[in-house]
Design a protein around this nucleic acid. Structure first.
Lengths: 347, 347
DNA sequence: TTTTTTTACGCAATCGTTGCCGACAACGAT
DNA sequence: ATCGTTGTCGGCAACGATTGCGTAAAAAAA
């Protein structure tokens, strides 16, 4: 079987003690040049690699961090993970990814699994189902390093990284208004999520600034964040069948935006002629869609980078950190065909 | 700071030895019911969790497996990873994902990093740049468990999981031929990859079976698997500018297919009127594209599941395994608008 | 009562590595 | 010749958990 060489093997082969070998390998000044050379060459020849598990046990840290997201098959998260990885790699950390699939139960299980000493810290974006956060609070109270990104919570004081969801939603809504749409529905994920609240506020503010009254029946929430297609389809159906049918939809999530277009196609609703569509999305493919989608894009890669930087700072900090940072990065809107200016009505 | 409770703490608090505590926790018959109850209740109260790192060191295994893929922001791989995760989770394994970004160097670094005793086995899909596989061979020769999936190699004898790329490519090509296209170009990833070879063979076989002569100039390879857009764009440009311009393109990869459509749009080539397009893709979004894409879809989730099952079997096998399995799963073709039957020419 | 068996627990080694302390030789200074 | 210093290196313990072996006390058998 696969039995890698250890420091003991080297010590035995060379007639030295393990401590001498260890020091020689780490270049300690207490070891003579001759011995060092001997040890280093032997180690190289037999391809010695220090056992990271033994090191973890000794140093009481694993040099790995856990990422808890709802889904990696989501452009926003896979881009964020790329950002996370790029920094983690350079700073000598492993990244362990776990998916909640928007389930509260699975999030708890994953967090427990990761936190029980196999990672040094956690990078978290809450699942859509999660409305209680005791599983994070307990860890955080014990001093376990956690950084939230994207879907954050106010109940825990720690570093946080988010996009400017308010402004992004405001811009999207304003863009629709500028294009001549006034009956704008809002399709969102679970209502309690931070991103949902902020985007909703941006949407409302844009309406208010344009003296458009807010219509409660235009708001549709999908509590499973679009994971369950039927939920989304029902929401879209009720919108297009409502008495005062909206002329545009602003959707607040990657999966929601795309699924919404799917549902509209299915219902033979023409976009943007019958209903315009603008949504949050990080997919590079929306440009190729029929019609090409106007989207608000989050700086996912940068958010991931910033989040893990903050986390590693927490982990490597000598004394307990009490001052926390909230990083807010700007979104960008890409205007395409799904929201081209509305033809003047009733001529 | 965060200092979790250990078996020693329990022993000290209860005036027992660590061995007694350990045995009590694992329900050994050598421990009296009273002592067991005492220990278990104390452990529960203080939320004791065994230190997985100490266990790893003792048992010489980490109960985690490494996944080496080119990119997780790719529908095929994120779906495959979901399959991997679903099985790993149930069998008590962690999954550590690393991305090569199609780079040979990074693949080597990642593999070394993972294999130096932080994972019990490896699930590998080769990067597009990889043409030497010594880094895997060395490990495999030492008895380190590896299972290849998707992009495999013939040079290492172990379990493998692939889609029926030959048949998938054959079907795609035949589909184009049935729709009236005969000048079919083939856009592929690096030529040496197993998937490229198999798909090329399927493509050639379909041409031959329909008595269409093979045209070398219709073959374009992107050695970076579509990671570098310009490479792909150059390939598409040279196809549409060639003397005997093809009327259809069969592309052999997720990123290639989508980028190809992007390039064709950019060059104002109408799909499918000017050039039809069929490609391998696992994106759920191709249905929404303009035009909706005809694709060959791989059973990614199932491939991931099967691959990790085989890997765990290897890891947990008592004696060295010498009989290896090659699992081949069928692809499925979804016919859409990018390959609708060609209008009769020259009327 | 004596011997044997059973019960219930502790001791110490182990996994691979590092930190601390002590040992011992060679050396120059006194 | 003695002392202190410096340069090299080994021994031991520790990180947290498991486990084979040993053994005291209690229970059962003689």
């Amino acid at each position: 079987m696969y039995e890698p060489i250890t420091i003991k093997d080297i010590a035995k082969a060379l007639g030295l003690s393990t401590s001498t070998v260890s020091r020689a390998l780490r270049g300690s000044h207490e070891i003579s040049a001759d011995t060092k050379k001997l040890v280093v060459e032997y180690a190289e020849q037999f391809n010695y690699r220090p056992n990271p598990i033994a090191l973890s046990l000794k140093e009481r840290r694993s040099r790995s961090i856990g990422v808890v997201v709802c889904e990696i098959a989501n452009n926003y998260f896979s881009q964020a993970i790329n950002g996370i990885e790029s920094v983690a790699y350079n700073r000598g950390y492993h990244v362990i990814i776990s998916q909640s699939h928007e389930s509260y139960e699975r999030e708890i299980v994953n967090v427990e699994h990761l936190a029980s000493r196999s990672v040094d810290g956690l990078l978290v974006s809450l699942s859509a189902e999660t409305d209680k956060i005791d599983h994070f609070k307990n860890l955080h109270d014990k001093g376990f390093p956690i950084v939230f990104f994207d879907r954050i919570t106010d109940e825990i004081e720690t570093h946080k990284v988010v996009a400017d969801n308010y402004q992004g939603a405001y811009n999207a809504t304003q863009h629709l208004i500028d294009a001549g749409y006034r009956k704008i529905a809002h399709l969102s994920s679970a209502a309690h999520l931070s991103i949902s609240i902020e985007r909703m506020n941006g949407y409302k503010a844009a309406l208010a600034d344009n003296k458009i009254s807010f219509n409660e029946s235009y708001i549709k929430n999908c509590n499973h964040g679009g994971m369950i297609y039927k939920e989304l389809e029902d929401a879209v159906r009720s919108l297009i069948n409502s008495k005062d049918k909206p002329t545009a939809i602003f959707s607040a999530g990657d999966k929601l935006t795309v699924s919404c277009l799917l549902a509209l196609n299915k219902f033979k609703v023409k976009v943007p002629d019958d209903i315009a569509l603008v949504g949050f999305s990080n997919s590079p493919l929306v440009e190729l869609m029929n019609p090409s989608l106007t989207v608000v894009k989050q700086p996912a890669f940068e958010m991931g980078q910033k989040a893990i930087e903050l986390l590693i700072n927490l982990i490597e900090s000598k004394r307990p950190v009490t001052e926390f940072e909230k990083v807010v990065l700007q979104t960008e809107i890409f205007e395409r065909n799904s929201s081209i200016p509305k033809a003047k009505p009733k001529k």
